[in-house]
């Protein structure tokens, strides 16, 4: 088991390395092919003179050989000094993704502020959609062809086809502006003001969960149907186990295993990509940060968010792999 985990860990490092190379390649070297200095993407509009461009390129190391640039880029993450937009030297501790000249702030600070928002949205929604989807899917699978099944699956189909920029405003309209059960959304940290935090994230949870729960319901249903036809379910019944034990302990356990994989990937992918949800509910998470950076061509932020998102996905995958090995003893060994 330890060997298995170490193997997966090594794989994770390898993937991160590849991601960093590709990211570096696209963002640092890409502009060169477009005949533009990467400096522009760092500090904004073209400076007045070519001399100034050259000076800036030298200051940020763009005149050095590409492998050296990559090494500086990676090394920089572990901390360095940076000259900010007002020509003052700032200490940029680990994890350092550089300095946003647009927002006059360290990228790590910006990201650090956005992460709790994104994580709050994603984790809550994930729990909701997992529980809801699995419950609906299981209920459907146990009574295939009945009213429950049809209602569940039709609902799932409807939910899957409704985008968040529709469900989001509808939820706001009903609960905030219509019924007035919730105040207008104003994010607060969970530690500072738990109630406010909950009020601000509950609607995003529902909107996001709605979309994913539908998918999980269908997935659970088909997996569960297949599992309930397995020989070992017949064995479980032949032992005299009650229906609940057969379904939950023997059926769901096996049916949910493939869902764990997809769940991990889904959650990992959402880090940095909940753009629409954050926009609709006016939350400043990673998605919002990155979309803002893209429109402003703020390269350091884009780089930082990309690496954080990749890290999130890779860690989620690692956790899934290890979890899977614990669930299914055939995987490891």
């Amino acid at each position: 088991m330890i060997r298995f985990i170490l193997g997966r860990f090594a794989g994770m490092i390898l993937v991160l390395f590849i991601v960093s190379v590709v990211t570096f390649g696209i963002f640092q070297i890409g502009p060169i092919f477009a005949n533009a200095s990467p400096v522009f993407y760092y500090i904004g509009k073209a400076p007045a003179t070519p001399q100034l461009v050259a000076a800036l390129e030298h200051r940020y190391g763009f005149d050095q050989p590409i492998p050296v640039q990559y090494f500086n880029f990676i090394g920089g993450i572990f901390g360095k000094s940076i000259t900010d937009g007002v020509s003052q030297t700032v200490q940029c501790p680990f994890p350092c993704f550089g300095y946003s000249f647009r927002q006059n702030e360290l990228v790590s600070v910006l990201i650090g502020r956005a992460i709790p928002v994104s994580v709050s949205i994603i984790v809550g929604a994930a729990v909701l959609w997992l529980v809801g989807g699995v419950a609906v899917g299981t209920a459907s699978a146990l009574r295939p062809g009945t009213f429950i099944d049809r209602a569940g699956m039709t609902g799932a189909l409807a939910a899957v086809s409704l985008p968040i920029f529709f469900t989001g405003p509808v939820l706001l309209l009903i609960f905030v502006y219509g019924l007035g059960w919730l105040p207008t959304i104003q994010y607060a940290s969970l530690l500072d003001d738990p109630l406010r935090w909950l009020q601000s994230v509950i609607l995003p949870w529902i909107a996001l969960a709605f979309l994913f729960a539908a998918l999980y319901a269908r997935l659970t249903r088909s997996n569960m149907l297949e599992t309930m036809g397995e020989d070992y379910i017949r064995t479980a019944r032949a032992k005299g186990l009650d229906r609940r034990t057969v379904i939950v302990k023997h059926g769901l356990r096996a049916a949910l295993t493939p869902i764990v994989t997809i769940f991990g990937i889904d959650v990992g992918t959402l880090i940095g990509t909940t753009v629409i949800t954050e926009s609709v509910f006016n939350l400043r998470g990673l998605g919002y940060l990155s979309i803002q950076a893209v429109t402003q061509q703020d390269l350091p932020i884009i780089l930082g968010v990309t690496i954080v998102a990749a890290l999130g996905l890779v860690i989620a995958n690692f956790v899934v792999d290890v979890l899977y090995a614990f669930i299914d003893p055939r995987v490891a060994v």
Partner: peptide, 22 residues
């Protein structure tokens, strides 16, 4: 349910698929 596994028990053709893999 009271009868199964207690008064009457059964074994099946394919022991691998008849045992829960997990």
């Amino acid at each position: 349910r009271q009868v199964r596994g207690d008064d009457v028990a059964m074994i099946f053709q394919d022991p691998l698929s008849s045992l829960h893999p997990f």
